[in-house]
């Protein structure tokens, strides 16, 4: 395609419960749509090749690596990012557990890790260690060695399970 005539398309998403709409080049990747167009910079880009998971967001509740999804593919869909975790000034149990258990160091992989973990604890809050490790195996962390992340997800899962029982 000629560079001068890139097609602009309107993308409308519901992100963290809010409807947002913007016109972008059709080739715009979801990660950059979220970061640059919508200004939500909590979602990070670490590799651009679906390898590291720093850009993980939930698309209709399912974790996707937003660096390899086109923004247009999210048109009309629900997105959740790290910015939506805290509700009414209260940290999500996952955020609290990551803080309590030293589940982060540099913090760059953390938003993606939290979103992958969110999908897991919703589905299987009492997942065992093996299941947790498998679930987060697409999210690379170079700082923590994962042990405290696993511990944090287990703690958060227990909190979520208790809340569900109530």
């Amino acid at each position: 395609m000629d560079n001068g005539k890139r097609q602009s398309v309107t993308v409308r998403v519901q992100i963290n419960g809010e409807t947002r709409e913007a016109a972008v080049e059709s080739r715009t990747l979801l990660a950059y749509f979220i970061r640059d167009t919508l200004g939500l910079t909590g979602t990070h880009v670490g590799c651009d090749t679906t390898s590291c998971g720093a850009c993980t967001v939930l698309l209709d509740g399912v974790p996707v690596k937003s660096c390899t999804v086109l923004a247009v593919q999210a048109h009309g869909h629900q997105l959740e990012t790290v910015e939506g975790l805290e509700q009414d000034g209260k940290l999500h149990p996952l955020q609290q557990a990551f803080w309590d258990n030293h589940g982060l160091q540099c913090g760059f992989c953390t938003p993606g890790m939290l979103m992958t973990a969110l999908a897991l604890v919703r589905q299987e809050p009492l997942a065992d260690e093996e299941t947790i490790r498998r679930a987060i195996s697409g999210n690379l962390c170079r700082c923590t060695g994962y042990m405290n992340i696993v511990k944090a997800i287990r703690q958060a899962g227990r909190t979520v399970a208790q809340t569900q029982e109530v």
Partner: peptide, 14 residues
């Protein structure tokens, strides 16, 4: 941690 777990860190590309 409070800023980093909220996605409110400010990294270079932000």
């Amino acid at each position: 941690d409070p800023r980093l777990i909220r996605g409110q860190g400010r990294y270079l590309d932000d």
